[in-house]
């Protein structure tokens, strides 16, 4: 009895260490989803004012953007047809958030019924949050960037040098950007954005600023500490990004890989 149950739970644990195996045990199910939803309905009232302020600030930022686009010359860019159709945004509310473990997940109140699917990117009004890793009918869980399994492509804002965004579990508001080539012009305070090299996030979503960096004498890569724009301990509203072209890109890349083998 003990043996069977113990091995079973260890098995479940090992399963969760790989991202793409679908999980049976996830808070995106009906019972826990509903309990978390009720809880967040109650506790959300305590943060309403701050949340309003955040949304207002975002509105202002977007308004400025719209204005600046209006002033642009009305010549449409060559690929203007492609831009609006590629990415679709959905919104959701965070109903459970972890940041103190080494593998943190966030639960949100939208699921497959709201056309949320695994592998969609998740951002907040301030920056990157994570990637959807399991969905049920009405809820979904997000693998937070504060998860040792998370690896997201990111780059310096003012050059095209990129690296992988990982987390060393120490501070919930500081993540690490590793494998940045030595040639890159790294300066403390510079902005880091998503690289757009994956099919999940569009290019240029804000992540954070460089807090400090180190490089070994004979190494070819920088390790950067990134101070996040997001306060990962205080998330309420998030946006999901769906890339309509993801499938096309993945099929194409797979064809090449298959052809090379």
């Amino acid at each position: 009895m003990f043996g069977v149950l113990f091995v079973f739970s260890i098995g479940l644990t090992v399963r969760t260490h790989s991202f793409h195996k679908s999980k049976f045990v996830s808070s995106a199910n009906m019972i826990s989803g509903n309990i978390y939803a009720v809880k967040s309905e109650i506790t959300d009232y305590f943060g309403l004012q701050k949340e309003n302020e955040k949304l207002l600030n975002e509105n202002i930022r977007l308004r400025k953007l719209v204005e600046s686009y209006k002033e642009l010359t009305p010549i449409p860019p060559l690929d203007s047809v492609a831009i609006p159709s590629s990415f679709v945004f959905y919104s959701a509310r965070v109903i459970n958030n972890n940041y103190s473990k080494t593998k943190n997940n966030i639960t949100i109140n939208k699921g497959a019924g709201d056309s949320i699917a695994i592998d969609m990117g998740v951002i907040s009004s301030k920056g990157l949050v994570g990637i959807i890793n399991s969905v049920s009918q009405n809820y979904a869980t997000v693998q937070s960037i504060l998860n040792t399994k998370s690896q997201i492509n990111a780059k310096l804002k003012n050059s095209e040098h990129f690296g992988s965004l990982v987390w060393d579990t120490k501070d919930p508001n500081v993540v690490q950007l590793i494998d940045v080539p030595r040639l890159a012009p790294v300066v403390v305070g510079d902005t880091i954005v998503t690289g757009g090299k994956s099919t999940i996030f569009p290019k240029g979503i804000l992540i954070g600023t460089i807090k400090d960096f180190s490089i070994e004498a004979d190494a070819n890569y920088y390790d950067l500490n990134i101070q996040l724009f997001n306060d990962m301990t205080n998330l309420k509203h998030v946006y999901m990004i769906k890339n309509n072209r993801a499938e096309e890109i993945i099929t194409l890349e797979k064809q090449i890989e298959d052809a090379e083998q």
Binding site: T16, K23, V25
Partner: peptide, 25 residues
């Protein structure tokens, strides 16, 4: 058996695979 049930319930809520279940059992 009850410990397993307890652990797996906590696991479901905290998205942690089977770690609570294993420790409880």
């Amino acid at each position: 058996f009850l410990s397993f049930l307890l652990g797996i319930t906590i696991d479901i809520f905290s998205d942690s695979g089977g770690v609570h279940a294993a420790a409880s059992v």
